[in-house]
């Protein structure tokens, strides 16, 4: 460094005094600015979703296993208000189909970690035990109520990440992960938010009731318009739709 008579040579045993003072000031300013920027950026992040993933915490749930077409556990509500549905997934970015294949329609005890965003629950399934011999579980009515044909604007998300595993579990930054999860069998859900910020979730199935995850991969994590027949199964809204009919808004 040449300034006045001083010249900085990095490998010299001693730095000129005025250079040393200047380097200290510049280094302190750079570090202070960097740290201040980091503090500002972390505080300015958008609010994180409310969902919780009880990673490392195992619970057990008793209920009846359904799988039409995605695995769902139908459990008796604690206050006796009627059964509630809990979506099921496997560890990682996978659906729970293989874990429950032999137990569909039976009463079971599911062990796993709860994922819950306050509006909908999912269990990351670790083990399933057949409770067919246990007479305590009441029979549940899985019959549905048709809500008619609807056109809904929203975003297709993977239910596992969106309900609490990832923050955020939607939008562009999560798109690739959502594609990976739905491709792996995690149930796809249409997230619909009204102008008051109220959320509703619609489990997406094909017009014949089949799983359609892989057919949705090009439409995930972006604004879409979905047309289909909606049926309410207890607290679960299921939308039958033709994947090819899903549209993006005109302005992209």
């Amino acid at each position: 460094m040449s300034h006045g008579d001083e010249f900085f040579v990095g490998h010299a045993p001693r730095m000129p005094e005025s250079t040393r003072r200047r380097v200290r000031r510049v280094a302190a300013a750079l570090v202070a600015c960097g740290l201040a920027l980091g503090v500002a950026l972390t505080m300015l992040q958008a609010r994180f979703d409310e969902g919780v993933f009880e990673f490392g915490v195992e619970r057990t749930f008793d209920g009846v296993l359904l799988a039409e077409p995605y695995p769902v556990l139908l459990v008796a509500d604690a206050d006796g208000a009627g059964p509630r549905t809990i979506l099921l997934s496997a560890p990682g970015k996978h659906g729970a189909d293989a874990l429950v294949a032999d137990l569909v329609g039976r009463p079971v005890e599911v062990t796993g970690s709860l994922i819950d965003n306050g509006r909908r629950e999912m269990i990351e399934v670790h083990a399933v035990r057949d409770l067919s011999a246990d007479a305590r579980l009441p029979a549940v009515d899985a019959g549905g109520e048709s809500l008619g044909r609807l056109i809904l604007a929203g975003e297709i998300v993977d239910s596992k990440c969106h309900l609490g595993v990832m923050k955020p579990g939607r939008d562009k930054t999560h798109k690739a992960c959502a594609i990976r999860c739905i491709s792996g069998g995690v149930p796809p859900v249409l997230r619909v938010e009204d102008r008051h910020g109220r959320l509703a979730y619609f489990l997406l199935v094909g017009t014949d009731g089949r799983a359609i995850g892989r057919e949705l991969l090009s439409m995930i994590a972006e604004p879409v318009e979905v047309t289909g027949d909606v049926t309410r199964f207890g607290d679960l809204l299921v939308m039958r739709t033709e994947p090819a009919s899903i549209r993006r808004p005109a302005s992209r």
Binding site: V31, G34, L35, L41, T42, F48, M166
Partner: peptide, 30 residues
């Protein structure tokens, strides 16, 4: 030292001001 301090501040203050944040997300962002 600056890099370590940056991560400690970003993750620490991020966790304090965003209680629902996950640590891995804060590390990715830091």
């Amino acid at each position: 030292g600056g890099c370590v301090a940056y991560h400690v501040l970003f993750v620490g203050i991020g966790a304090a001001t965003h209680p629902r944040a996950t640590i891995e997300t804060l590390v990715i962002r830091a």
